[in-house]
Amino acid sequence: MAFQEVIFWVLAVSSVAAALGVVLLRDIFRAALLLVVVFLAVAGFFVMMNAEFLAVVQVLIYAGAIAILIIFAIMLTREVQQGNLPNRLQPAAVLFPVLLLAALVFVAVDTDWNLLQDQSRELQDNVEVVQTHTIGGIPDEMRGDIPGSDRSGLGELLINDFVLPFEIASMLLLAAIIGALVLVRER
């Protein structure tokens, strides 16, 4: 247990420090790199919570795709290392993060953490896999003996219960691709 706590604190400190660096650094390229560190640390948290699928998705989509997109945009922008000057959007930039922070604090305070802990401990005793509970009913015979083998349940949920959001997301991505093609098309 102690070992896991050490790992947790390493991840926690590094993710918070990197997140502060993202906000405070003047050099936007380094800020983008620290964002990658934040993403990887969050993936580490997911692994610690037995949500290995989520961790791998985090690495693939955030650390892989989105971070590279950001860095690509920075490399193609001129005079990028000077950073942005303050502009008239400053009040909005204060307001919305404060609202977000309030919502997060409310959720953190309002949630009954003890109950979740008990539940997860109970689940660990019963089925060894914590996150199977969070994504709903998976029959026992579909679950392998290795942790993290809950993809089949996730996939079934995606094409049964949540098929509409899933398809809407794909339509959104298709629209984005076509929009990008229209934008860069030669006239």
């Binding site: 791998v56 690495v59 693939l60 650390a63 892989g64 795709a65 971070a67 392998g144 993290g148």
Partner: peptide, 18 residues
Amino acid sequence: NVDMGLFYIIAFSVITIL
């Protein structure tokens, strides 16, 4: 033995680009 080893390999090989 990661149960989704193939997925893991694909995800981490992307970081090389970075």
